[in-house]
């Protein structure tokens, strides 16, 4: 692995509609071939951080007002989303966002529109996705709107893969799915990282699963990354266990005041 990380988010501030401050100086980095997870409470800023990375803020009238996002050392702040997809960064949106009236296969093909694939090259790219997600094969001719939540999540990931990304940002891939399906999806993400060297940036509410599968974790609070470290270390921290696993007895303590930092940098 080289010295410079693949993705660097450097002290960014994000404002929605010129009024709502969603990120206040968030920094993180993802190395090539690394799976990084962002954990944090509702409204902490995880989705916003992902959208800043894949340049999807503009569609929600959000803007990076300070700091930079670097992909392979290049400032990508001015690229539009399509350029960024071509450069190798793609996002799998929260709630999957498959195209409901397109068939499963058409959904996959739509992911390759930017690559202008046709004929045999397109077939090969499709087969690769079907290999990873055999569950999609019998559904290929069915409208995506009629497939199950798990299948839609697989489809959304498959569709992203059709663009040949080097970094995939995933927003809550486990949302609303049964534990077994979640495992299946994270196993495939694992394979993508190991076999294809694709880097992953995963925002998750399901901290237990995410920490088990990620290499590195950041905890986001009030628009900042307040703690980070190897996933195993983070999982072992008692304060994190309290907050995100609800495992220990002290999880019944009174909630912290809104806005006050809950976690502090470990000594």
């Amino acid at each position: 692995m080289t010295g410079t990380p693949l993705l660097v988010v450097d002290d960014i501030e994000v404002v929605y509609q010129q009024a709502i401050l969603a990120l206040r100086g968030l920094s993180l980095s993802v190395d090539a071939g690394q799976a990084v997870t962002l954990l944090g409470a509702n409204g902490a800023g995880k989705s916003t951080a992902l959208k800043a990375v894949s340049n999807l803020l503009r569609a929600e009238r959000g803007r990076v007002t300070r700091g930079r996002v670097l992909f392979e050392g290049q400032d990508i702040g001015r690229l539009d989303t399509a350029d960024l997809v071509e450069a190798g960064v793609i996002q799998v949106l929260e709630g999957r966002h498959c195209f409901p009236q397109l068939t499963v296969e058409e959904n996959l093909i739509s992911g390759a529109v930017s690559r202008r694939l046709r004929g045999r090259a397109l077939r090969a790219a499709l087969d690769r996705v079907y290999d990873l997600f055999p569950r999609l094969v019998p559904k290929r001719g069915i409208n995506a709107g009629y497939t199950s939540g798990g299948e839609q999540q697989m489809l959304a990931i498959g569709r992203a893969l059709m663009a040949r990304p080097r970094l995939i940002a995933l927003d809550e891939p486990s949302m609303g799915l049964a534990p077994l399906v979640v495992e299946e999806i994270f196993d495939i993400l694992h394979r993508l990282r190991d076999e294809e060297g694709i880097s992953l940036l995963i925002a998750e509410q399901n901290a237990a699963v995410a920490l088990r599968h990620a290499d590195h974790a950041y905890i986001v609070e009030n628009g900042r990354a307040v703690v980070d470290g190897p996933a195993a270390d983070i999982a072992a921290r008692p304060d994190v266990r309290d907050l995100y696993f609800g495992l220990s007895a002290s999880s019944e303590r009174t909630p912290h005041a809104p806005g006050a930092p809950v976690l502090t940098e470990s000594p």
Partner: peptide, 8 residues
């Protein structure tokens, strides 16, 4: 939004 996200 999905179309945007896949690079269309």
């Amino acid at each position: 939004v999905a179309a945007l996200s896949v690079g269309i």
